[in-house]
Design a protein around this nucleic acid. Structure first.
Lengths: 204, 204
DNA sequence: GTCTATACCATGATAGAC
DNA sequence: GTCTATCATGGTATAGAC
């Protein structure tokens, strides 16, 4: 029992440390992006030495991959947590709002849209791709349902809708509006969600 | 007269070379972004040695700035080239289409939305900021006119509309859709323009 | 056994010699 | 104009402290 208990404690400590590292990575990724983020900074933010970090994660890439995978899991979990009776389009709205709020809190790294070194490596990562596909599947179902109900434009191919929604989560307009300093976080989120669904024209 | 003529020819040659350098920079910027772009690559693409490039441009930053300034000039020129009788909203649509087409041709660097080293430096560049302000002014006028005509949502603050439109020019959905390989350049452009103005709901 | 300090190596921006 | 050096940065590997 002593051994088991100690092992567990040690593993818990490990987990706590790794969580701290991943958290620091997420924040730095969100702030600077993959290429500009340095492992030194992450280590400093996490309060450990760079070499110690390499005991937990084998490379900068694997660090970033772990963060992205965790975020995708959270996104999927968020979708599942929504009440089933909620309209598909409102689930989509909810996901976008969730992502934007996360980002405005400085916590969501832009998905690897920008041609970074990450992109190619992530696409070679089975665990990452698995989750991407899982999320895509759920989203496509939501889109088709919403189109069938006539609340989303049926003239748009479902993947165009899904990709556009993903794109909105990393919309640079967030930064522009934040920089202008004229709007609260909530306002930014609401405007962007509105623009995403109703467009610049609005509902006429 | 000999000297003058030769000077002119030399200057022309210089200009040709600098244009080649700027063109190479634009392409590399579009492909890899500022941070991942190396001056070596630009020099190689332009067909000269790296050190020679530094005879023309004092730094990597000044290279990028020159490209961005030129692009902003082109954007403003594009707006001015549109027939005055064209509806404001159609001018906006035209600008977005122009930018997306340029990007799909591999020619438009994502504006410095991503927190890159560039961003801060560009904002310190008078020539750049001057053009940004000039473009903003024209765009705000168009937005207000379109809102007055009721073809753009009057409930949206004009700057939200302008920033959203800028954001669409660097919409990562472009890359996603291109990667999927299901759509032609033209289709991508049309879908994105449609989504930008009518939203995912479409006009109902 | 896990962290710290330091060493190593490639890359990439810039400067100077021809 | 090119070629070659310099210098800083940053990812990674090792060696020793607790």
């Amino acid at each position: 029992m002593g051994i088991l208990a100690r092992l567990t404690v040690r593993q818990q400590q490990q987990k706590v440390r790794e969580d701290a590292i991943l958290d620091a990575t997420r924040v730095m990724l969100a702030k600077k992006g993959y290429d500009l983020m340095t492992v030194d900074e992450v280590a400093a933010e996490a309060g450990i030495a760079k070499a110690s970090l390499y005991k937990h994660f084998s490379s900068k890439e694997s660090l970033a991959a772990a963060v992205m995978i965790h975020l995708l899991d959270q996104a999927i979990a968020f979708l599942e947590s929504l009440p089933p009776e909620l309209a598909p389009v409102d689930k989509m709205r909810g996901l976008l709002r969730w992502a934007l709020d996360l980002r405005l809190d400085g916590g969501l790294p832009l998905l690897p849209s920008t041609s970074s070194t990450l992109q190619s490596n992530l696409l070679a990562n089975r665990d990452y791709v698995k989750r991407i596909l899982a999320l895509n599947e759920r989203m496509l179902d939501l889109v088709k349902a919403a189109q069938a109900q006539g609340v989303l434009d049926p003239g748009l191919p479902p993947d165009v809708v899904v990709f556009s929604l993903y794109a909105r989560t990393c919309d640079p307009a967030v930064e522009y509006l934040q920089m202008s300093g004229r709007y609260t976080h909530q306002q930014v989120t609401e405007y962007l969600v509105k623009v995403a669904f109703a467009g610049l024209q609005g509902t006429r």
